[in-house]
């Protein structure tokens, strides 16, 4: 089944970040598998009606994080990547989501919980 990307133009989150996050989430959830081809920058820009530079930046960020690779003849494909932090963190995230679903929490509530946890255990800046 084809995955659909949604970009909210009025959101405070930058457009490239929305795209990056959704592709990374789809790859993490296994909806995009290693070797799956992504649409070209121009196709995705035309479908979303946003600038090609925005899509190119999202793809660059994904490539830098190891989620995708760009090959000359195959375009942008999903990379074979282990989630950062290993399987323990992934399993913990899965348990968190299962617990949130059981408690009927909304996705935004889960995001807020994770943001709060990240803030409480923030990494001190080196600068």
């Amino acid at each position: 089944m084809t995955q659909t990307l949604r970009v909210d133009l009025e959101s405070g989150v930058p457009h490239y970040e929305q795209i990056r996050a959704q592709v990374a989430a789809a790859a993490t959830a296994g909806r995009l598998r290693a070797g799956d081809r992504l649409p070209t920058v121009r196709v995705l820009a035309a479908d979303l009606g946003i600038a090609t530079g925005t899509i190119a930046r999202a793809y660059r960020e994904l490539e830098a994080a190891g989620w995708v690779t760009t090959r000359r003849r195959h375009g942008t494909v999903v990379a074979d990547r282990e989630p950062s932090g290993g399987s323990r963190v992934g399993e913990a995230a899965l348990r968190l989501v299962v617990a949130a679903r059981a408690e009927h929490l909304s996705d935004q509530d889960v995001h807020d919980l994770v943001s709060g946890a990240l803030l409480a255990h923030s990494v001190p800046s080196s600068g």
């Binding site: 084809t2 081809r37 649409p39 196709v43 946003i50 375009g75």
Partner: peptide, 13 residues
């Protein structure tokens, strides 16, 4: 495309 929420399929063509 119009509207504030845009959609696109993640399928190459």
């Amino acid at each position: 495309p119009r509207g504030s929420v845009r959609e696109a399929r993640l399928a190459p063509r």
